[in-house]
Design a protein around this nucleic acid. Structure first.
Length: 132
RNA sequence: GGAGUGGGCCGGGUGGUCGCUCUGAUCGCAAGAUCGGGGAGGAAAGUCCGGACUCCACAGGGCAGGGUGGUGGGUAACGCCCACCGGGGGCAACCCCAGGGAAAGUGCCACAGAAAAGAUACCGCCACGCCGGCAGCCCUUGCUCUCAUUCUUGUUGGGGGCUGCCCGCGGGGUAAGGGUGAAAAGGUGCGGUAAGAGCGCACCAGCAGCCCGGUGACGGGCUGGCUUGGCAAACCCCACCCGGAGCAAGGCCAAAUAGGUUCCGCCCCCUUGCUGUUUCAGUGAGGCAGAGAGUGGCCCGCUCUCGUGGCAUGAAAGCCAGGCGGAACGGGUAGGCCGCAAGAGUCCUGCAGCAAUGCGGGACCUAGAGGAAUGAUCACCCUUCGCCGCGAGGCGAAGACAGAAUCCGGCUUACAGGUCCACUCCGGCC
RNA sequence: UGCGGGGUCGGAUAACGGUAGUCCGCCUGACUCUGGAUCAGGUUGUCGAGGUUCGAGUCCUCGCCCCGCAG
């Protein structure tokens, strides 16, 4: 499986965001929240939201890009048939990428979305499958 | 070499892998795939000004409101830029200035001070007049000294006059002085005067007129009368500018649901009492074929409601209104597409101009997202710092401010570090 | 995108352009066996940078931050 994350995989309208946040199940940990709405159709869709008081456009974009990169590399191991909205309330732009990944993986595992291996194994297997 | 002033440029590089997005070609019914190409900034920022563009409004002008404010030029326009003038700062290069009007009017100037602006004001100074006191001199008179005396001496006895000084009062002159204040009625000096005063004179500051230079702000010279506090980023006056809203502008396509307009169809049957009374209409009761609602798990049953109203007519047809069902049309919401990337464009260059800039010539095409792309990772190099090492070098860390959202011209603010040019001052050497 | 309002001690809130107050808090002392209450004294502030003015919390310009409104 190719590791992609394109426009069709994103939640793109205010109405859908509101629906998922209103009706979804909420799990929070370490400055992050995720709202989960289960769907009957297959596939996952993600909406990423960064609180505007966390900083300027540069820091918010940095957080969002890191988050998106994590989702791109790891969504194959995550539950199917869900819509997710991930909300960031804390500035995670500092610090090294490894701890950032651990924080997100912890949240997803707590929400019961990530059934698989710990994150560094996931990284490792991803790299192996790439080189293969 | 040191210190500084003004201006320009850059602001990590190369390669590999995995992605995102736009686009060209090919393949594919489509989803998409393959190959090729493009993909943040000097401030993209703040949104402080000015335009382009779009829609609305509009005969012309004014008021209100807002903005700008030395002069000349540049520009599509500006609160921007250039040059110059005036003022201020710096030894200098150079920098800073909302820099029109205070004699149109209103207002304010705390504390202190006589007074903060109408100087008929207060204190003071000055001469004059009056009252009083003191001192000196003179006149007169009493007493005394003396044997005596009109003389002389003495007298802190009385009266009068003159002069000087002092206190008070009166009506005048004066604006020199008043030490407070951020600021004091042009300043300094000489003359002058009862005392004084631009009262007169010289210089300085300022004002007005004339002449000369300059497009002009203004500068220089001469002459004159002697003179006007500050604040307009207080109200205000003057000159000039401004129609309003904004790409979520605006245009096109266009579901579902509700509503609008038009058209078509349907709005009933049986028995019987009463009223008008030919059919028929109204009204009441029943039948229970039909529709709807409620109830019971369903068929079915039970209960309730509906099964038109008006005009017109001898009557029907008809017309108007209403209800139900169906079709079409238009507006419009979600959503989609356009607006939206060839432009006051970028680079090189000639001419005009002190310059801003203008007029030409040549070459080039350079982001286009929309809950919002431009990222992640690895290796090598570059810069800086720390540690180790005598050293060559090794290890580790860091690499500014910041992210397009219709576009453009400015302003302002943020910014590690690097680099280039011109100029000024100081020191040294030749 | 276009508007509007506002930043004053630790908190709340006043102040014509003229000495920055008031309440709560905090500290010290008095009172009390101690604490509380009470009384007296003290502490700390105009969002930042420029400008106008003799003088700025107040007026002007620029910046920073907060809150709100409209589509």
């Amino acid at each position: 499986m190719r590791l992609r994350f394109s426009r069709a995989d994103r939640i793109r309208t205010t109405k859908e965001f509101r629906e998922i946040i209103r009706g979804g199940e909420k799990v929070s940990a370490r400055g992050l929240s995720v709202f989960v709405q289960r769907r009957s159709r297959p596939g996952q869709r993600f909406g990423l939201a960064i609180a505007s008081r966390l900083g300027g456009a540069v820091t918010r974009n940095r957080i969002k890009r890191r988050l998106r990169e994590y989702v791109r590399l790891n969504r194959a191991k995550m539950a199917d048939g869900v819509d997710l909205v991930v909300v960031v309330h804390r500035d995670l732009s500092g610090g090294d990428p490894e701890t950032f990944r651990e924080i997100i993986a912890g949240l997803f595992r707590q929400a019961g979305l990530l059934h698989d291996l710990p994150p560094h194994y996931a990284e490792e297997s991803a790299r192996r499958s790439r080189s293969r």
